[in-house]
Write a protein that binds this DNA or RNA. Structure first.
Lengths: 247, 247
DNA sequence: GTTTACGGTTGACATGGATCAAGCGAACGC
DNA sequence: GCGTTCGCTTGATCCATGTCAACCGTAAAC
């Protein structure tokens, strides 16, 4: 009897947890702007929830594409590989952000998505998302906005890689992280990096030593306090100023 | 009487010219994969055709977004500006490609689109495109693919800017242009650059002098023949080899 | 036809970040 | 608790590309 109750409760809990309508990330994620009824229809679509352990791949370049993924919790990186072994991190993704949009184009994933900490993702079968967004205008429009935002973000990274010097890049990176943590209700001034210096470097087009040196420099200047992966931002304006001036 | 006939002919010609169904770029552009009936519905949507002279803006960063643009003929660049005056070319677009996808996200354009030669574009009102793609599954799916392809392209540029050295970048750039010209029925081995060395440099994250030197180097090595903006590719494999090896 | 402006090339030199190398501290496995 | 590993830091040196400058050729302007 006690066991049956426990079981029922588990089922209920899991049902609550899987639904977008009860997800506290819905204002950051795909459901943004949907009405209650619309949300319930989206719930039907998001049946699977998957745990990905730190270091595991959510998908690999070359794999068949059939779903996009919303990050429920955790932290990911995506990277692309060149034939000669060079690779580059193309992004870091956190809760509420979507993964896999690159796969729509060729119906195969074009990059690897790897969990940087134990994470949970919601699978969104893409063809069903397309059907539903043919019916729900707001969903369609929001999805288009999300894809477009990804394009704009990429332009920002191109700008960073093409025109900024090492310290500017790192400052931009920290400010961007800070802003995204803030949007998720975390402290804007204090956070743990989930990625290594090498991964940061790869993303910023720098070597890990350069990243490390820039961190030390920022600490000397009093902009931040670094202790391994623990970062405290002491002077946001200092970092911003660093980015806005030539030299 | 003669005048009336002339007039009718003009109207007919203009009607033919504006329709996707008669556009020889339809296999490269938005209409890809549509049936004849579907094509005709797309025709209704693309009412305006606009000429943009060399040097003129199609749109500017900050402007209200309400349409995306298909390039009917000509050549464009897009660039983004930082507050401190730095700018970067984010892409070069040719016939059959779409411009303005970045504007969906915020309903404002986030970059400038400038014609590098006298060009013609088709305006596609975005809200009408969304309505139509709620009705035409193939159009919806193809549009998603186009957006996704843009994301994949941007990742390629990030890779280029983040991990390649100057000569690799220029080789990648030339091979990419060559391949896109080929897709449009032009020679893969001989073409005119529409952009200056400075614009190439901005796109590749290099200074114009470095671009110029790399061109000269390629010429010395016998990979290409350069004469100002006229490029002949003499050894595609040479260029490819240059990209695939470290050093 | 001459002048002017602009884009391109080339050379000399400077420098930011890469590379190579050593050492250190925290975390993890045994 | 101890050793090993991995990520990080820091120093010394090197090199690819940036910077500065001169000059050239082509094309547009007058």
């Amino acid at each position: 009897m006690a066991q049956t109750m426990q079981l029922n409760q588990d089922i209920t809990l899991s049902a609550i947890k899987t639904a977008c309508s009860n997800c506290n990330l819905r204002e950051l994620c795909l459901p943004l702007g949907l009405s209650l009824q619309e949300l319930e229809r989206l719930d039907d679509l998001i049946s699977t929830r998957r745990r990905i352990k730190r270091g595991e791949h959510l998908y690999r370049a070359g794999q068949q594409f059939d779903a996009i993924y919303a990050i429920r919790s955790g932290f990911f990186k995506t990277d692309v590989l060149l034939e000669d072994g060079r690779d580059q991190v193309t992004g870091f993704q956190m809760a509420g952000e979507l993964l896999g949009l690159d796969g729509i184009s060729t119906e195969h994933h074009t990059c690897n998505a790897i969990a940087l900490e134990d994470s949970e993702i919601c699978s969104i079968p893409f063809s069903r998302l397309e059907s539903l967004s043919r019916e729900i205008h707001t969903l369609q429009h929001h999805f288009h906005k999300v894809m477009s935002r990804e394009i704009v973000r990429d332009h920002g990274v191109m700008m960073l890689l093409g025109t900024m010097r090492a310290e500017e890049r790192l400052a931009a990176f920290l400010l961007n992280l800070s802003q995204r943590f803030t949007a998720r209700g975390f402290s804007h001034a204090e956070f743990y990096l989930r990625m290594t210096r090498e991964e940061i470097g790869s993303y910023l087009g720098l070597k890990l030593e350069t990243v490390s040196r820039a961190f030390s420099k920022f600490q000397e200047e009093g902009y931040i306090a670094v202790q391994q992966k623990h970062i405290r931002i002491l002077d946001v304006n200092g970092l911003k100023a660093l980015m806005n001036h030539r030299n």
